[in-house]
Computed example of a mutant assay.
Amino acid sequence: MTALLPIIEELADAADHQARAQWLLAVPLAVIVRDHLTIRRLLTAAGFHEGTAYLEAEIAALSAVRGRDGLAAFTVRNTREFARIGIQVIARGGALEGKD
């Protein structure tokens, strides 16, 4: 028996970075906010640097002060979108870190 919630166990049991990227894109943002320390630990232990960068970008965007338009600063949104695009590419099976 493990202390991890079943949804976090899915990440812990992911076979590769593609599966981790798919998990990151599918998991509810509330889980990311609630369990970001555990998620960061699992991504770091797996050597999934793009996943860690995406996690940090999501947390920054979700934690950012919003302007009058209800949006975070452009730099925060831009960083989040670039990180998300990278994770989407990996989730589709392309551009894995360390591959030529």
Rank of each mutant, 00 (worst) to 15 (best):
A73K: 15
E81N: 09
G93P: 07
G98Q: 06
E9Q: 10
D13K: 15
A72S: 06
G70H: 06
A30M: 15
W23F: 04
I32W: 10
R41P: 03
A53G: 02
L42H: 00
T44V: 07
G86H: 07
A46N: 05
I32Y: 07
I32H: 06
E97W: 12
A72T: 09
I85M: 12
Q22Y: 01
F48A: 00
A46I: 11
R68C: 09
V33Q: 14
R80Y: 11
R66A: 02
A19Q: 10
R20P: 01
G86A: 05
A73D: 07
A14K: 03
L42W: 03
R77H: 02
E9S: 09
I8S: 04
L62D: 01
A14C: 02
Y54V: 05
I59A: 00
T38C: 05
G47Y: 14
T79S: 05
A95K: 15
E81Q: 12
D16C: 04
I39H: 00
A57I: 08
R84N: 02
D16Q: 08
G94K: 14
G94W: 14
A15V: 12
R84M: 11
A64V: 10
A83E: 04
I39S: 00
I8V: 14
D69M: 10
R80Q: 08
Q88K: 13
R80M: 09
I59E: 00
L55C: 01
D69V: 09
D16Y: 06
L55A: 00
I7C: 06
T79K: 11
L55K: 01
I85L: 12
E50K: 15
G67R: 15
L43I: 07
A64Y: 04
T75C: 13
M1D: 10
W23S: 01
K99T: 15
I87C: 00
L29T: 10
A91C: 01
P6Q: 05
A30T: 15
L71C: 05
L25V: 06
R34M: 09
I39Y: 01
E81C: 08
A91Y: 05
L29V: 13
A15T: 05
T2S: 07
V31A: 08
E10W: 07
E50H: 12
L62P: 04
E56T: 05
I85T: 04
P28M: 11
R66K: 13
E10S: 02
S63A: 02
P28A: 08
A15C: 05
H17C: 02
A57P: 01
F48M: 01
I39M: 01
L5R: 14
D16N: 07
E10T: 05
A61D: 01
L62E: 04
A95N: 12
G98M: 13
P6T: 02
L11T: 00
G51F: 08
E9A: 04
T79L: 11
Y54R: 11
L29K: 12
L96F: 12
L62T: 06
K99W: 15
